[in-house]
Design a protein around this nucleic acid. Structure first.
Lengths: 316, 316
DNA sequence: TTAATGTCTTTTATCGTGAAAAAACAGTTT
DNA sequence: AAACTGTTTTTTCACGATAAAAGACATTAA
């Protein structure tokens, strides 16, 4: 009845650590990559905007870069002294958000089998095993609950609803409703809207990928997400746009999970996308509808075949 | 730019209180009401199931009832000694969940005007003013974010998106999509499904309320919610069912906010519901569709007229 | 006098802690 | 034995505290 039957995992923080400095480390790594391109760095506010962090963090980065001899820093003058070496970078795993760590850990368990619908999810146990505080786990579960895979019992534990066939069907039902509507809205957008340029660019990327599909087929999932998000955005409805987070999340793990015929599946999908894009550009609602329907149908099929049929679920 | 420009409110807990015992107090009050009906109480597990709390809480309740001379308690024998007096009850405000307290406080501010779209929401400030810890506020904001009224900036503050006309339109767009589909699913349910009985009972309640509308018009909102939830449940789709939480939440506060022509509006709505119910019972999809559309249209209208038109919102 | 840097303050993110409540276990009564 | 009561252990909920990160303010350079 427990979510986790055995096994162990290790969080690496020993004593009362309050907050990891992953924002700093991640921004530092990204800043290193910037170093390759220029001989001197811009002003602190500019750098902050570029990296998406505050000036406080920028200054920590600059301070360390000075220490390690990467730059000479005197007020406005930030001269690059040498190219960054591999060991200048912080290790990848130290740049992750706690939320990302928890999500990965949680999903690994959920997909690793033995996670039956109806199981209890224990906050404390999860926290201990991932090696984080209970608060972070609680917050993760609350955020995660909108994906419809878990549910809270009033002042008690969480219950796993399971990544079942029913779930996939409910998800795709909404997806199809939303995307059909968004696609129609997209086709009705005025000619001078910026989306047509975006669409052209995406079409180009699709064509390139189609050409090099043999070696780059695994790059499709990222392109897929960008394409569908562009379409959903045309709905101008926050609930539709936000719902794509659910789909993206499921497909993200689904892609990692189900590698069978990945190349073939992606090749087919690219073809469907191109037809879909042509339909949108034609602004013919009938064509859009049928191209969209066709693609969504095969996407649903792909998702469904990757879900092992479990015994009949007993619903409350 | 701040969410709260002035004013002050008082949380009443002084020192480091860990967790209020509102579960106990609320269950205790409900148990008092039970006392009126019987001469002796059932077993502890049974009582727990009845009140929806654990045996631990049941025993605390029984212990206090014994102390205050309400019952004589010896193992299985729990004899009622006297009727509960008004001062036996815990005060209403002590039975609320922290989440409820925070939500009320937050919504009061949001609707009290001066809450412009784009304002920052400060966790610490909110927590201080409501008189609760920051964790509870954070968790509330995360849960609340699914209503689409606030949005988080990555490791920074929350931003208020505002209860605007655009919000209402986006909300009702989804609502109409979902309810139309649910209503069709409802009408297609087999004759022996339990929902038809539920529908008959709701129809009865509608007729009674229609008759006594002059005095009981304010009881409509609760009936409205039960009716629409019954329909949405027919979709058998968790995302559709869960979305009704968003609608219910908005309408809950909307009813409190907009009292203009409440009686008339509710009277009209009851009429529309009755037509809608007839349509469902006829199982004629055309009729269902048009009755549903008509009702949703007027519901949208009601919501829209209650939102003051603000200056054109500047979107990012 | 604008836009940067240097400094100080506030807020967010996360933890450990402790009381409330649930759940598990053990012992009784029917 | 089945279902209850008594007792103990676990888990959830909520808080204050603290480091990281953001933000505000003061100062200085172009």
């Amino acid at each position: 009845m427990r979510f986790k039957p055995a096994a162990a995992s290790a969080g690496m923080n020993g004593s009362g650590m309050s907050k990891s400095n992953n924002v700093y480390k991640d921004a530092y790594n990204r800043c290193l990559r910037l170093l390759d391109e220029t001989r001197s760095l811009p002003s602190e506010p500019e750098l902050g905007a570029l990296l998406g962090v505050s000036r406080t963090t920028v200054r920590s980065i600059l301070a360390r870069m000075e220490e390690t001899g990467l730059i000479a820093w005197n007020k406005r003058a930030k001269t690059v002294l040498r190219d960054p070496r591999p060991d200048d970078f912080f290790p990848e795993e130290e740049t992750d958000t706690l939320a990302e760590i928890i999500e990965r850990s949680f999903m690994r368990r959920l997909l690793a089998g033995g996670a039956e619908a109806g199981m209890q999810i224990n906050e404390l146990e999860l926290a201990r095993e991932i090696g984080v505080g209970t608060t972070s786990v609680r917050e993760f579960l609350i955020r995660f609950s909108r994906f419809g895979l878990i549910e809270k019992r009033r002042n008690s534990h969480w219950v796993l609803k399971g990544f079942t066939r029913a779930f996939a069907l409910e998800l795709t039902e909404i997806r199809e409703m939303f995307e059909l509507r968004s696609a129609a809205a997209f086709a009705a957008l005025p000619q001078d809207s910026a989306v047509w340029g975006d669409l052209d660019r995406l079409e180009g990327e699709h064509r390139v990928l189609a050409h090099e599909i043999a070696t780059r087929f695994n790059e499709f999932s990222e392109l897929d997400e960008r394409f569908h998000r562009l379409i959903h955005r045309a709905s101008h409805n926050r609930f539709i746009v936000d719902f794509y987070d659910v789909i993206a999340m499921i497909f993200h793990y689904h892609y990692q999970w189900n590698k069978a015929q990945e190349r073939e599946r992606n090749e087919v999908a690219i073809g469907e996308h191109l037809t879909y894009i042509e339909a949108l550009k034609s602004r013919d609602l009938g064509k859009v509808d049928s191209a969209c329907r066709k693609h969504l149908k095969s996407a649903r099929q792909t998702l469904l075949t990757s879900i092992p049929e479990s015994r009949p679920s007993q619903k409350a």
